[in-house]
Design a protein around this nucleic acid. Structure first.
Lengths: 146, 146
DNA sequence: GTGCCTGCAAACAGTTTGCAATAGG
DNA sequence: CCTATTGCAAACTGTTTGCAGGCAC
């Protein structure tokens, strides 16, 4: 799962991008982050090992990743952007209590919805994509009460 | 469908709010807007008949409406907020070409998804709500080509 | 009358932009 | 070397806040 710096370097080059140190460390951190960090959060973590990195660069680099299809931009509930380099999963779970955003994908659900729209299409609309946002609270497995 | 000023006045009072002129006109415009206006857009339209109204008041009033359950705040794709006083419909269609946001509700789809999560629940998550965002392009009915 | 609401302006958060310095190919 | 990328700071957008005056009840 984890990608090494040299693998990331190759990945960047394969997309026609210069493999700069900043891009490598940003991608590395983003790819190994599970809960859709903001640019600000990435910046704070990156500063520890890369004190000279700037927030503007983080934004520009993330934008470049989105343009080249290496990452995805997701809106959080507070209106700021969060990023994700894990591109296979399409839907999101919003934990209202912990503010986490977690990926969710289920092929059965996916097919269920696709089948629905195939059967009952929306007038004047050519559907390109759909995203399901699931909101809920985190429940400890131990607590069976709810 | 259309609500008169006096009906809106009653509605506001029933929610324990002072029926000020600003609140009445803001609610009136919002309730009769179909495509989820931004605070800014409402402000621009309101200024025509209410030149002294301020943008801050529009924001505060919309926030009051959201608090009292008279309206809903929706994130647009660009990260700004849009408002909606039509509270029955839960899902949204995003027209990527025209930038419109339109309500969508289908009880069959609703039940389909609810049934799915009843059957296959997500570990550690107590689902409170879910929203489907459908993205697509507007297609003229006349054009049958796509 | 009194307390909530408004208008105004200033503050704020998150993001984008412009430009000179820098480093990758 | 030459151009794309970086770092920095300033600008910008959308939203929130604080406060004095005004209005609904």
């Amino acid at each position: 799962m984890e990608k090494s710096f040299s693998e990331i370097k190759e990945l960047l080059i394969s997309k026609g991008l210069k493999a700069t140190h900043q891009r490598i460390v940003i991608y590395h951190l983003l790819f190994n982050s599970f809960e859709h960090p903001t640019a600000e959060l990435l910046f704070e973590k990156l500063k520890i090992n890369n004190p000279s990195i700037s927030l503007g660069t983080v934004y520009k680099t993330l934008d470049t990743f989105v343009q080249t299809g290496l990452a995805e931009k997701v809106l959080s509930e507070t209106g700021s952007y969060r990023y994700d380099a894990n591109l296979n999963s399409h839907h999101h779970i919003y934990y209202t209590d912990t503010k986490e955003i977690v990926d969710f994908y289920d092929s059965e659900l996916q097919e269920l919805i696709i089948a629905f729209f195939k059967k009952k299409s929306i007038p004047n609309l050519k559907i390109k994509d759909f995203k399901l946002q699931i909101q809920g609270e985190k429940v400890d497995i131990a607590e069976k009460s709810n």
